[in-house]
Design a protein around this nucleic acid. Structure first.
Length: 461
RNA sequence: UCCUCAGUAGCUCAGUUGGUUAGAGCAUCUGGCUGUUAACCAGAGGGUCCUAGGUUCGAGUCCUAGCUGAGGAGCCA
């Protein structure tokens, strides 16, 4: 069994008989000869199959329409056509499955991405989604390779969590209780002690807290798994179910954390350029002419590193009328981030040392008493691609912060114990996988870089 | 969730100030063509104009509500 990718790669294929299997992209020809572009998804390229109509059953050729699946045995020859070097002259054809041309929704001409979302079960058969899904795979592989080669262990943190304080957003409840008739407490609230886990449980919004447990034992870990946010977010950058990569490192301070984030992102982009040029070339041609140049630009330039306080100064001095007025203490809005990244620095920016009041409880408090060692990596086009921090390792400071924010300490006892027993400075960050794929593919909607997107009001397929 | 825009053939879209029988390209079907490249040429079929109300002699077009989609914002990765 050989893939089309490997056939097109092999140097001495001409003159050899082989077999290919795949789906028909286009068919054209006349009563004597038929040309079929066949694709098996192993590569963006098709193989042209040439059929001498006199040698085959007319009804068979008729059934080989766009979308049909066939196996073809034949000899590989140099192609007289301009668009391909080699082609296959068919000697034997097996029709695995036809695709009724009256009802098969994919045409050889282009479709809108919105329409393709409605037929997400078939869109992997298009050039665009083939390219995106192959790049997605390559980046996922590169993530594991990078961490493995750098002494990180892959830690599997739970999908179902009993912790309500991951603090990253609204959560989906996980329950086996009867939705119509749940057991109730005396005060009318739902009695979760009768639920499957004996307590209220949710889908995770982040593996970070468990990740820290791993880092404070194995030194360097990473997670790479699905996460869930029940936010009613309707934007091209948000999903209700998305994949996140969260490295967590003992003995890393905030600067080490930034070094890692930058090196990691550059490694992944370089990996795509080294291994996915066919697919990137297609996306560049069809969707985003500047894509490859933009990816190269990232590799060739350092990320700008500034403090939040400095960022506020720059924004204030910019003279730009922002919709949201700039003042120390505000959270940076999209318009502010875009100004810094796209207008002022014109490259990725890492903003650090945010006011503690706008950041999570676990971030390490600075000596100034008002900022914490958080860091956000801002990218052109997609905005915040990474959020991370050095974590607070001091037991008292962490406990006080939990009290201040009125978080339920009883749910965090295990997290606090890591600071009680052999605490260590440590850091980590979260990278949104689909946001990275957005950047690498040049696609503009996050629903088009995951096979089966989950968004508000949509869980089809 | 808020704001803006859109919804017409299988797909992508046009449709004038409200006015006769709603059009095009592609796709599909039929025929033609001796090597095509999103093949080409000719012909044919194909419509609940998103849904429900309303204004009007008359609504694809105007108004109201809803549904769906997209863009922007918020939340964030």
């Amino acid at each position: 069994m050989i893939t089309i990718k490997n056939i097109l790669r092999s140097a001495d294929i001409v003159g050899k008989t082989t077999e290919i299997k795949g789906w028909v992209r286009t068919k054209r020809g006349n009563k004597n000869i038929t040309f079929i572009a066949l694709n098996d998804g192993s590569t963006i390229h098709n193989i042209q199959v040439v059929i001498d109509n006199t040698k085959f059953d007319e009804n068979l050729i008729k059934q080989i329409s766009t979308g049909a699946c066939i196996a073809v045995k034949g000899i590989m020859v140099e192609s007289p056509g301009k668009e391909q070097l080699v082609e296959m002259h068919a000697e034997n054809i097996v029709l695995y499955g036809n695709a009724d041309p009256e009802t098969y929704p994919l045409q050889k001409k282009g479709h809108s991405l919105e329409f393709l979302r409605e037929i997400a079960h078939l869109r992997p058969r298009t050039n665009t989604f083939g390219a995106v899904l192959r790049i997605r795979h390559a980046i996922a592989f590169a993530i594991h390779k990078y961490f493995n080669d750098n002494g990180f262990y892959y830690l599997h943190t739970p999908i179902i969590t009993g912790s309500d304080c991951e603090g990253a957003g609204e959560m989906f409840r996980v329950t086996t209780l009867d939705a119509k008739n749940p057991p109730l407490n005396g005060d009318g609230s739902v009695n979760f002690s009768e639920d499957f886990f004996g307590k209220e449980t949710k889908l995770t919004v982040s593996g970070q807290l468990e990740g820290e447990l791993g880092a404070l034992a194995l030194s360097r870990i990473y997670t790479f798994g699905p996460t869930f946010r029940a936010e009613n977010s309707n934007t091209p950058r948000h999903l209700a179910e998305f994949w996140m990569i969260e490295p967590e490192m003992a003995f890393y301070e905030i600067n080490d954390n930034m070094d890692l984030a930058e090196d990691f992102l550059k490694y992944l982009i370089r990996y795509a350029l080294d291994n996915c040029m066919d697919d990137l070339g297609f996306l560049c041609k069809m969707y985003d002419e500047e894509l490859i140049a933009r990816l190269r630009f990232i590799l060739e330039n350092n990320f700008e590193r500034i403090t939040y306080t400095k960022a506020i100064e720059i924004l204030k001095k910019s003279g730009v009328q922002f919709e949201f007025p700039v003042d120390w203490g505000i959270d940076l809005q999209t318009e502010h981030e875009r100004y810094l990244v796209e207008k002022y620095f014109k490259r990725p920016v890492i903003v650090t040392d945010y006011p503690k009041d706008i950041k999570a409880f676990y971030m390490k408090q600075n000596d100034d008493g008002r900022t914490v060692r958080g860091m956000d990596v801002l990218f052109p086009k997609i905005g915040e691609i990474i959020g991370g921090s050095q974590r607070e390792e001091d037991y008292e400071k962490l406990k006080n912060r939990i009290t201040e924010l009125q978080l339920p300490e009883k749910d965090l006892w295990w997290y606090l114990e890591t600071r009680k027993f052999g605490t260590a400075p440590h850091s980590g960050f979260g990278l949104g996988f689909e946001r990275l794929i957005l950047f690498v593919t040049g696609m503009s909607n996050i629903r088009d870089v995951i096979p089966f997107p989950r968004t508000p009001k949509n869980a089809e397929f």
